[in-house]
Structure formats: structure tokens, C-alpha cells
Measured scan of single mutants.
Amino acid sequence: MTSCHIAEEHIQKVAIFGGTHGNELTGVFLVKHWLENGAEIQRTGLEVKPFITNPRAVKKCTRYIDCDLNRIFDLENLGKKMSEDLPYEVRRAQEINHLFGPKDSEDSYDIIFDLHNTTSNMGCTLILEDSRNNFLIQMFHYIKTSLAPLPCYVYLIEHPSLKYATTRSIAKYPVGIEVGPQPQGVLRADILDQMRKMIKHALDFIHHFNEGKEFPPCAIEVYKIIEKVDYPRDENGEIAAIIHPNLQDQDWKPLHPGDPMFLTLDGKTIPLGGDCTVYPVFVNEAAYYEKKEAFAKTTKLTLNAKSIRCCLH
């Protein structure tokens, strides 16, 4: 018999989150649709729960009410004593943790798909938090293969000092899905179709896995975050240069030392320094102006996964 890495157990509980950011409308629209008619997301033997994560922000069509829901799922915020004085999103995070967690427990949901849009030209993107997770690498390989020839990129946010504390991190297997470009507060049919297909293929993978299909060893190309880059700023902290036209919409493309990065209003080009080629992502993302992030630098690498098969009882 072929030796293989056996994944822990079959997958039982899956959640699909929309509206973690209330103005990213593809996930909101799909989740609302699936709450009314969820036939397309159901798979035999699998509990799939669509869920609106930040209903107040969705109602106002804004990213958040008090603070970013997708950055506060750490033990400090989840452990705060519940009171009306807490920011709305912290209270909501505790409610979500109660419903789908608790985080880092045996009772937490197996998989959470968190649906997002970006204003950046990132196409279909899967966000991975753990480079050693054979199950998710296999799932992402399946999704990428199923979507081809449509490109699907994998963004690895594993980093020693950049801690995200994402909404989906309460699950055993957290999956971020990011599709763009799409303006905030807008629905685009092409973007919706791409996100819908990503979810379909992900659920198909889980179904095949649960039925005992063995997935042979595989490898995927990923883009691992190195650092986030702020806009150049003046002495008052105001933005002093904008994304250069040569960099705009060039997510995932190589940016070499000396290539144009920013452009000042008086026409001066600010190039990339250093001696390493990087791959920019979230270029000129609207939501990241407040976070002082013009783009993120990534490096390209390959992740390998062992063969996996479900432990059938």
C-alpha cells in the first residue's frame, strides 16, 4: 500500500463567511444568496454554514464600524470581559468565536472560507496562513488546477512579526479568498463568478477527501510576504508620492531593483532599492491607505505537500 500522510479526520463542519468587511460585496451577495438557497454549497455528509460576519458594517456598506474585524481574533480580544464599552467588532468577534470556535479547541469548525474583495488587480487569490499544512496545500492545488487556465495565486502570510489574527483563524483550516479588482461597494459579475467557482472547487475537494480519495504528493507556487511598504510621506505625515503608473495593476509581476515604484507630484520617480527582485501584491489597495500600506513585497517559492487521505471509520 502506498505510504501517505493521513489527515486527522474527515471534514464535518464548514463555514463560509461574507461581510467580514461590509463594503466587499461579492461575499456579502453570495452568502445572502446561499442563506436563501444553499443547494449549490451542500455536499453529502458535510455541514456547510453561510454566515454574515459583520452585519452592521454590511448594512452601512462600510469596511467596519469601530475597528477591523479581520485583525482582532487574538486571545487578548477574544478574552476581554464582555461589555457595551467594547468596540462593536470586538464584541462581534467574541460572538463569532462562540459560534464557530472556540479558537484553538477541538470544537472549532474544521474549515472557514472568508470571502473578500480587493481594489487591487490580484485576480483569484487564496490566502494561506501555514506553509506546513498538507491538507490546505492539497486543497489549493486542486482549486488552482480546477480553475486553469484562469490564474489563481496563493498568498502566504506566515511571518515572524506580522500577526494578522484573522476572522477565519478560529477554524482548524483557515482559508482566505480574495478576488479583484473590484471597487468597494460595487458588485461585478465576473468577480462574483470567479469567487463562486473557487468555493465550488473547494467544496468538491472536501467531498472527494471525505469519500476516501487519496491525493498524491503535489507542489504549489506561493508568494510569501516579506514586508509592507508605506507611501513616501512629508514631515507632516502626508502622502508625498503615489503608486507609479508602471507599478499600478502589476500585482504578482516581478519588481526589480531600480524599477519605478512611486511618483511625486513634481514628476520624480522613486525606484525600488535593494538588490532583490520582489513580487508586489495589494498594490494601491483602497482599504490600506489608513493602514499606511502602499503594497506588500513578496518572494516566490514552492511548497510541497505529502499525499493525504481521509481516515475512514
Rank of each mutant, 00 (worst) to 15 (best):
G123C: 01
A148M: 11
V179R: 04
H207N: 11
Q182P: 02
K59Q: 13
P87N: 10
W252M: 08
Q184H: 15
F262G: 02
R92K: 11
A57H: 02
T166M: 09
V90D: 07
K228S: 10
R71D: 13
H21I: 07
M198C: 15
E106Y: 11
P174R: 15
G101N: 08
G79A: 13
G237C: 00
S3E: 15
N246R: 12
Y288A: 15
M198K: 06
H98C: 13
V222C: 13
M139F: 01
Y153T: 08
P271Y: 11
S120I: 02
I41M: 02
M139E: 05
I65N: 08
H256C: 10
K200L: 11
D234W: 03
P149R: 02
S108R: 15
I191D: 05
A15F: 06
K297P: 01
N70L: 08
T53E: 02
H201D: 03
S3W: 07
G19Q: 02
T26F: 01
A93I: 10
M139R: 05
H159L: 08
I52S: 04
L255I: 09
K292E: 08
H5Y: 10
N304C: 13
T299I: 15
P151F: 01
I96C: 07
Y223M: 01
V14S: 04
F205T: 03
H313K: 15
K80D: 12
Y164K: 15
P151Q: 09
F51L: 09
E24F: 01
N97K: 11
Q12E: 14
I52P: 01
L30A: 01
T44Y: 08
K306D: 14
N23V: 05
G18H: 03
T53G: 13
E293H: 15
K297M: 14
P217Y: 03
L303I: 12
V58C: 10
V28E: 06
P232D: 02
C311F: 10
H10L: 13
E76I: 11
L150R: 11
R132G: 14
E221S: 04
P257F: 02
E227D: 10
T298V: 01
N117P: 03
G101S: 07
Y289S: 15
R63W: 01
N210M: 06
N236L: 08
V90E: 10
G212D: 00
S3Q: 14
Y173H: 14
D110T: 01
H313S: 15
H244T: 03
G45A: 07
D74N: 13
T118R: 06
N133Q: 04
T264G: 09
G22D: 07
N70S: 10
H201A: 12
I112V: 14
P260G: 07
D259Q: 08
R63H: 08
S307E: 09
N304A: 12
R56C: 12
E8C: 13
L303Y: 02
R43F: 01
S108D: 08
D230C: 11
V48I: 11
Q250L: 04
M261A: 11
N134A: 12
F73R: 10
S108N: 14
G38S: 13
T299R: 12
K197M: 13
Q194A: 12
V281M: 10
I177N: 05
A7N: 13
E214K: 08
P181G: 02
F100R: 03
S105L: 11
V175A: 01
E290T: 10
T166I: 07
E293P: 10
H141L: 02
F209H: 00
Y289Q: 15
S146M: 15
L86N: 11
I270M: 08
L115N: 05
S105M: 11
E221C: 02
I11Q: 01
Q194D: 06
K213A: 11
L192P: 03
D110C: 00
E158A: 05
H21W: 04
F29D: 04
G180R: 01
I65T: 10
E221Y: 04
D251N: 12
I41W: 04
K163T: 11
N117V: 01
R168M: 09
F215Y: 10
E95I: 09
N117L: 04
R92G: 07
N23L: 03
T299M: 14
L115Q: 05
R92T: 09
C67V: 13
T44N: 14
S3K: 13
H244A: 07
I199M: 12
D190S: 07
F29T: 15
C276A: 15
Y279W: 11
E227Y: 04
F215W: 06
Q184G: 12
E238C: 09
D266G: 08
D110R: 03
I52H: 00
Y64M: 13
Y109R: 03
L99I: 14
F215K: 02
L78T: 10
L263D: 05
I157A: 15
D68Q: 03
I220H: 03
K306V: 09
K81G: 14
A202P: 05
N97P: 06
L35C: 09
N133E: 03
E106V: 13
V229N: 00
H141K: 08
E221K: 03
N134R: 03
S146N: 15
S131K: 09
E211N: 14
I41P: 02
I199Q: 01
K80A: 14
T269E: 13
L187G: 00
L115E: 05
F100A: 04
G258P: 06
V58F: 07
P160E: 14
Q250G: 12
H141E: 02
L303N: 06
N54M: 00
Y142N: 03
N54F: 01
D234H: 08
N210G: 04
H207S: 12
A148K: 10
T53I: 07
L265E: 01
A165Q: 14
A165C: 12
K200V: 10
A7L: 13
Y289A: 15
A171N: 04
G45K: 07
I308Q: 03
L30Y: 01
H256E: 11
K224E: 07
M195Q: 11
N97C: 11
E221A: 01
G18F: 00
L99D: 09
A171C: 14
V28D: 03
D114K: 01
L25S: 15
D275N: 11
E227M: 00
I72D: 08
A7H: 14
G185P: 04
F140D: 04
N23I: 06
T53H: 01
G27T: 06
E221W: 02
Y223G: 02
D249N: 07
F29I: 08
R196L: 02
N37C: 09
E47I: 11
C311W: 11
T269G: 02
I270F: 01
D259H: 04
V48H: 03
L156N: 06
E293G: 10
G267T: 02
I170L: 13
K103A: 11
A93W: 13
D66W: 08
I137F: 05
N37T: 07
H10A: 15
R91I: 14
F73E: 12
K103R: 15
L192E: 05
V90Y: 11
N54T: 00
I143N: 05
E40H: 05
G274C: 00
V222R: 01
I308P: 04
P257C: 01
A57T: 02
Q94D: 10
Q42V: 08
A287R: 15
P181M: 00
M261C: 12
I206Q: 00
C67I: 12
A286I: 03
A287G: 13
K291S: 10
P174G: 12
V31K: 05
Y153P: 06
F51P: 05
I137S: 05
A202H: 03
Q138M: 00
K292D: 08
Q12W: 01
T119R: 06
I6E: 15
Y223V: 05
R309V: 09
P151C: 04
I96K: 06
E95T: 12
V14R: 05
K300S: 01
L303D: 03
A294T: 05
D110I: 05
P55T: 12
C61Q: 13
K297L: 15
S83G: 13
L126S: 05
T277R: 03
F29V: 12
P280T: 00
K306R: 12
V28G: 13
I72F: 10
M195C: 10
P232S: 04
T20D: 00
R168F: 07
H313D: 15
H201E: 06
K268A: 09
E235M: 09
D104Y: 14
L46R: 04
R132S: 15
H10T: 14
H208L: 15
P149L: 04
P232H: 00
I177W: 05
G45E: 04
H208M: 15
H313W: 15
P160F: 07
S105C: 12
T277F: 02
V186Y: 03
G101V: 04
H208E: 15
V179H: 03
Y288N: 15
S131Y: 07
N37I: 01
L162S: 15
K228T: 12
A219H: 09
T20P: 03
A294F: 03
S3C: 11
T62V: 14
V175Y: 04
H141T: 04
V229P: 03
H141M: 02
